[in-house]
Amino acid sequence: MATQAEHHSTRRDFLFVATGAVGAVGAAAVVWPLINQLNPDASTLALASIEFNLAGIEEGQSVTIMWRGLPVFVRHRTPAEIAEAQAVPLSELKDPATDQERTKPGHEQWLVMIANCTHLGCVPVGDSGDFDGWFCPCHGSHYDSAGRIRRGPAPTNLVLPPYEFLSDTLIQIG
């Protein structure tokens, strides 16, 4: 009698555990799509990576383009700006980075940066500030000609988006 009852109870336990486990798997499979729908949709992802033609930008000229909803500065730097940026000793920088690290080798004249001040996100003004770069009017951050923070409340240099040169005049951002 005892063994039979025991036998029954194990079979019963197994059935309940199996049903519960399958039910839990089902619940999880339902929950995931309900969360995943919050992620960027296909039309947003399609614009996650863009191509941009640099051909029309003159030396000393800067354009602002949009990438993933963010403004991006693309600046064609003059030799003077490049020389000035390269001459700055790292010890003078709040967020040390060489000019080479801020640009792509062989394309030092091109500076591509996300145009939001790293302080609180305003868009800095070009060709201004005390370091021949950018100046953020919101809270007074000064950036140099390599977009590095030199003075003011911003903690870090202007952020570089992931990008690469597909050819001398074509970049792909993202």
């Binding site: 799509p33 309900l34 995943n36 729908q37 992620n39 949709d41 296909a42 039309s43 947003t44």
Partner: peptide, 13 residues
Amino acid sequence: EHIRRDVNGGRII
């Protein structure tokens, strides 16, 4: 239609 086409799992939801 955007929900059906682009949103993750949108057609099912």
